[in-house]
């Protein structure tokens, strides 16, 4: 897993999050993993293909998902992680990945992205590659973290 391929995803976060009201998203951790990841509560998988193939996962706990969804909906209170809030998080994942795809194009790598698959629940693990992948924790502010799991296929 080439570390320079992670930057387009991290940069997408720092560019997109301020647009929805999170002014200073910070990268707090970055590490290589090879074991299955564990869902924090709300997990969105977006695949990409073309000149670069892989998956990116946005993994967060349900409180953070509700908090982010609320902010995206102009502060509308989100008590339940209902279909409206799910749509918001799904849309955010789409925005982030689309932005990352634009950033990858600047590196000369054209990619198309799939629709996001949003999964709810804590009691499961997921695997996005047979090889190692990178995990980045983005602190978006007020104690809310989005974990990004980024896997690039080199086949």
């Amino acid at each position: 897993m080439d570390a320079k391929l992670v930057n387009p995803f991290v940069d997408a976060c720092t560019a997109v999050m301020p647009q929805i009201g999170f002014d200073t998203p910070k990268r707090t951790k970055i590490y290589l993993r090879d074991k299955n990841a564990v869902s924090r509560g709300v997990t969105v998988i977006v695949g990409f293909s073309k000149e670069l193939r892989g998956n990116v996962v946005y993994n967060m706990d349900e409180d953070s998902a509700k908090f982010i969804a609320s902010k995206m909906m102009m502060g509308m209170p989100v008590a339940e992680f209902d279909s409206m809030a799910q749509s918001a998080i799904s849309e955010l994942s789409n925005m982030l990945t689309a932005k990352a795809a634009t950033n990858l194009t600047k590196l000369g790598l054209e990619v198309d992205i799939s629709t996001p698959s949003l999964t709810v629940g804590k009691n499961f693990t997921f695997k996005i590659t047979d090889a190692q992948y990178l995990t980045v924790d983005m602190d978006v502010g007020e104690g809310h973290v989005i974990e990004l799991d980024i896997a690039v296929d080199h086949k």
Binding site: K50, N55, S83, L118, G121, N123, K127
Partner: peptide
């Protein structure tokens, strides 16, 4: 085109079908 697989293991996995 297809993207590489992402595989989920668990019980009661709920995958939302949004705008599909």
């Amino acid at each position: 085109r297809i993207t590489p697989p992402g595989t989920i293991f668990g019980d009661g996995i709920k995958i939302a079908s949004l705008k599909l």
